[in-house]
Simulated assay, not measured.
Amino acid sequence: MRLIALYRPGSSILHRAPAGLKLAALAIGALVLSLYPHDAVSIPLSLAAVLALYGIGGMPIRVPLLEIWRLRWIIVVLAAALGVFVSPLAAWVGTGRVVTILLLASLLTLTTRMADLVEVLQGILRPFQRWGVDPDAVALTISLTITTIPVIAGFAERVRDASRARDVRLGVRAVVPLLVLALRHADDVGDALAARGLG
């Protein structure tokens, strides 16, 4: 079992940019997207800007579209909940915000080596050592959390494809095989970390 590797090698300006700068840009972008009072027009503009960043990173349009496709059930459930309990506009704006932030996080992992990301997080967390924080463990946990989103989405796609191949509609029961895959993946990652002496 290899550690999660979502990085796509390239020579674009995003690939060459320092990992710390990209992580800061993601944090600022997520904060702006969360706090800015969006309307029906600003959401597609934000999505278009993120798609343009994928182009700058040398990624074909199918890459962000595949990420959206993998997250489609999360998108559908979120949009439906907001649409029913709040309003259609809230569903559009809220779902658009989440999709945009997830696409930004995915772009970070696609253009940044895991080792570089962990190193930056370790540097940020090192001052907190005096309060008992373990920078290595926390940095690795955060980086793995960022990369786990598309992995779990991929598991959901596998479960759906398997049910289609058997002409079976799992419905809510699809949670069971998805949970099994997720737990098995967690065990494999734990074994890989232990083999590298990371505990």
Rank of each mutant, 00 (worst) to 15 (best):
residue 164 R to P: 01
residue 198 L to A: 05
residue 48 A to K: 04
residue 62 R to W: 04
residue 98 V to C: 14
residue 179 L to Y: 04
residue 92 W to G: 06
residue 19 A to R: 02
residue 4 I to Q: 07
residue 20 G to N: 02
residue 60 P to N: 08
residue 145 T to H: 12
residue 24 A to L: 15
residue 25 A to P: 00
residue 128 F to E: 01
residue 80 A to S: 14
residue 137 A to C: 08
residue 54 Y to F: 04
residue 146 I to T: 03
residue 58 G to H: 00
residue 82 L to A: 07
residue 126 R to K: 15
residue 49 A to P: 13
residue 193 L to T: 04
residue 122 Q to D: 15
residue 58 G to I: 01
residue 76 V to P: 07
residue 142 I to A: 11
residue 187 D to Q: 09
residue 177 P to H: 00
residue 160 R to Y: 08
residue 135 P to N: 04
residue 154 G to S: 10
residue 69 W to A: 09
residue 102 L to W: 10
residue 182 A to Q: 07
residue 81 A to I: 11
residue 31 L to E: 01
residue 198 L to V: 12
residue 15 H to F: 02
residue 30 A to Y: 14
residue 57 G to H: 00
residue 131 W to D: 00
residue 50 V to Q: 11
residue 1 M to R: 14
residue 111 T to M: 11
residue 50 V to N: 09
residue 17 A to N: 00
residue 197 G to L: 01
residue 77 V to P: 12
residue 171 G to T: 10
residue 97 R to V: 03
residue 68 I to C: 10
residue 122 Q to E: 15
residue 117 L to G: 12
residue 123 G to Y: 04
residue 126 R to P: 02
residue 172 V to P: 00
residue 125 L to G: 06
residue 146 I to G: 01
residue 3 L to M: 11
residue 20 G to P: 06
residue 25 A to V: 15
residue 61 I to Y: 05
residue 171 G to Y: 04
residue 195 A to W: 09
residue 94 G to Q: 01
residue 166 R to Q: 14
residue 34 S to L: 15
residue 47 L to C: 07
residue 41 V to W: 15
residue 54 Y to H: 02
residue 191 D to E: 11
residue 72 R to P: 13
residue 52 A to P: 07
residue 173 R to Y: 10
residue 182 A to P: 03
residue 64 P to T: 12
residue 195 A to L: 12
residue 81 A to G: 13
residue 174 A to G: 09
residue 167 D to H: 13
residue 55 G to S: 09
residue 108 L to R: 02
residue 35 L to M: 15
residue 188 D to S: 09
residue 185 H to G: 03
residue 183 L to Y: 06
residue 74 I to P: 04
residue 199 G to A: 14
residue 10 G to Y: 00
residue 191 D to A: 08
residue 195 A to Q: 09
residue 192 A to S: 10
residue 107 L to M: 12
residue 69 W to V: 06
residue 183 L to K: 08
residue 33 L to Y: 10
residue 134 D to E: 01
residue 20 G to K: 04
residue 10 G to S: 09
residue 159 V to P: 09
residue 45 L to G: 13
residue 58 G to K: 04
residue 106 S to G: 11
residue 65 L to W: 13
residue 128 F to H: 02
residue 163 S to V: 05
residue 111 T to Q: 06
residue 118 V to N: 05
residue 5 A to Y: 00
residue 177 P to M: 10
residue 61 I to Q: 06
residue 194 A to S: 14
residue 44 P to N: 15
residue 73 W to C: 07
residue 181 L to K: 06
residue 155 F to S: 03
residue 45 L to P: 12
residue 112 T to A: 08
residue 45 L to C: 15
residue 163 S to W: 01
residue 50 V to S: 05
residue 136 D to I: 07
residue 55 G to E: 03
residue 97 R to F: 01
residue 31 L to Y: 13
residue 66 L to D: 10
residue 89 L to K: 08
residue 55 G to D: 03
residue 164 R to V: 13
residue 81 A to L: 10
residue 80 A to F: 14
residue 105 A to Y: 01
residue 143 S to L: 11
residue 178 L to A: 00
residue 36 Y to S: 07
residue 105 A to F: 02
residue 43 I to V: 14
residue 51 L to H: 05
residue 154 G to H: 03
residue 9 P to H: 11
residue 36 Y to C: 12
residue 72 R to S: 13
residue 99 V to M: 06
residue 154 G to V: 10
residue 147 T to M: 04
residue 23 L to C: 06
residue 6 L to E: 03
residue 33 L to K: 13
residue 5 A to I: 04
residue 75 I to W: 07
residue 24 A to R: 08
residue 137 A to V: 12
residue 114 M to D: 05
residue 78 L to W: 06
residue 70 R to T: 08
residue 140 L to C: 05
residue 102 L to T: 13
residue 55 G to R: 11
